[in-house]
Amino acid sequence: MPVSRFGVSLEEDLLKALDEYVKENNFANRSQAIRFLVEKNLVEKKWKCDNLVAGAITLVYNTKKKEIRSKIQDIEAENTEIILSSQIFHINPENCMEIVAVRGPSFKLTELSDQLIAIKGIQHGKLIMSKVD
């Protein structure tokens, strides 16, 4: 695919942040990083519509805090129509990683992941989606 060139003007702070992003993510150059960010934004925009997607929600939390697991179970029980499966892996004696396999309209999966990730005590959370049609 042919490449078009254009100029971009950025404030100094934003340019420094871009350069740090390039370095942290091992991009070859700024152009590659900008391409990645634009493509990522376009994909996420498509996900906000009604596309049928499958995905995984990954959560990391402290197993000693029982209220976290209880809140996760409550939310999962309310969303059985889009949850395919859930599995917990113990990372160490205090922390676990839970992976929730999901399938449904992209906006519903995004709403579910936002609810789960927002639970107080979740150390890390991320949703990954792929179109299924």
Rank of each mutant, 00 (worst) to 15 (best):
E39F: 01
Y21D: 05
G121Q: 07
N51V: 09
N95M: 14
K126G: 03
L52Q: 12
I99G: 01
L18R: 09
V60H: 03
E98V: 00
S85K: 10
Q73R: 08
C96S: 15
V132Q: 02
F36A: 14
A28E: 12
E24C: 05
M1K: 11
E11W: 06
K108C: 02
S70D: 13
S106H: 02
I75S: 08
L109D: 01
R69C: 02
A17S: 15
S85Y: 07
S130R: 05
E94A: 10
R5S: 13
A28K: 13
G7R: 07
G125M: 08
L15P: 01
I119G: 06
K45W: 03
E20G: 06
R5C: 09
R103D: 00
L112N: 01
N79S: 12
H124K: 14
P2M: 06
Y61S: 06
I83Y: 01
I82N: 03
N79W: 00
Q87Y: 08
L42D: 04
E94M: 08
E12T: 13
Y61H: 09
S86D: 06
V132M: 08
L18S: 05
V38K: 05
F36R: 14
I75G: 09
E94P: 02
K65T: 12
C49G: 14
I82L: 08
N41T: 12
Q32C: 03
Q87K: 14
V43I: 13
V102W: 01
D74V: 08
I119C: 02
E12G: 09
I117L: 06
E39R: 15
K126S: 10
R35V: 07
I82K: 08
V43G: 00
Q73W: 04
K126H: 06
A28W: 04
N95H: 14
R30L: 10
S70R: 14
V8R: 12
D133M: 07
D50S: 14
K23M: 11
D50E: 14
E20S: 15
A56T: 13
I117M: 04
S85Q: 10
L14H: 07
S130W: 03
I68Y: 03
Q115I: 02
C96Q: 12
K71A: 15
V102D: 01
I34W: 01
R30D: 07
G7S: 15
K45E: 13
H90G: 02
P2Y: 02
L84R: 14
V53S: 06
I88W: 04
P93Y: 08
R69P: 00
K65A: 09
S9R: 10
N29F: 07
V100R: 04
M1I: 08
I117C: 09
I75R: 02
V43H: 10
S86G: 06
N25C: 07
I34A: 05
A56Y: 05
D133E: 13
I34P: 03
C49P: 00
N92T: 13
P93L: 07
I75P: 06
M129E: 09
C96F: 04
R5A: 10
V102Y: 00
L116W: 01
L127P: 02
D74I: 10
H90T: 09
I72F: 05
E67N: 13
R69H: 12
G125W: 01
